[in-house]
């Protein structure tokens, strides 16, 4: 049995990407295995851990809970799309390095996505709001302490400012 392939066009990190995908291919598998954007990670494939978080039309979602075919016509931002146009680290990424808001790095992409979405909507969040925003991202290394510190630092440094 061959599976029907569906033509899709998705804007990924600002670049239109086209493909023909089987319906059951999840967005995260498409991003990782076909586009080779391996910065987005798979942790549970059932929507709990948040490691696969990406921005869909600017909002953070779990990319394991979306089929790639459903993203047709939409805009996707992955961790690879967070850096500044010249490739240097964003304020948020740099703040994670400064506060050592990560260890093994596996959940980090999802945390960065969640944090960037928070700061975009709320440039000066309280600690409680930071924890709320990352509450759906499980991390086994950090106990969240230095993650919260990194996001707080990023906010202080203006990571939430919409830069032109």
């Amino acid at each position: 049995m061959t599976e029907t392939l569906n033509a899709i066009t998705v804007e990924v990190n600002g670049v239109p990407r086209t493909a023909r995908v089987p319906a059951r291919l999840s967005l995260v598998d498409w991003l990782r295995d076909e586009l080779r954007l391996t910065g987005t990670h798979v942790g549970c494939e059932h929507g709990v851990c948040g490691a696969c978080s990406i921005l869909l039309d600017g909002e953070p979602i779990r990319s394991c809970l979306l089929y790639a075919v459903q993203a047709d016509g939409h805009r996707v931002t992955t961790v690879e799309g967070l850096a500044q146009p010249d490739g240097s680290l964003s304020v948020l990424q740099d703040s994670f390095c400064e506060a050592h808001g990560l260890q093994c790095g596996y959940c980090t992409s999802g945390l960065l996505i969640a944090a960037q979405a928070l700061l975009d909507a709320n440039p000066h969040p309280s600690d409680a709001q930071i924890r709320e925003a990352i509450g759906g991202n499980l991390c086994r290394c950090t106990g969240y302490q230095q993650v919260v510190e990194a996001i707080r630092l990023a906010a202080e440094r203006g990571a939430g400012k919409i830069t032109p």
Binding site: R32, L37, G39, H41, A83, C97, H100, G105, Y106, T108
Partner: peptide
């Protein structure tokens, strides 16, 4: 001091076994 490892991870450029194709 900043770590040597963090930058590649925040860029999404770690290389985990599932990234080995």
């Amino acid at each position: 001091r900043r770590t040597k490892e963090d930058p590649r991870f925040v860029m999404g450029r770690g290389r985990y076994v599932a990234d080995v194709a």
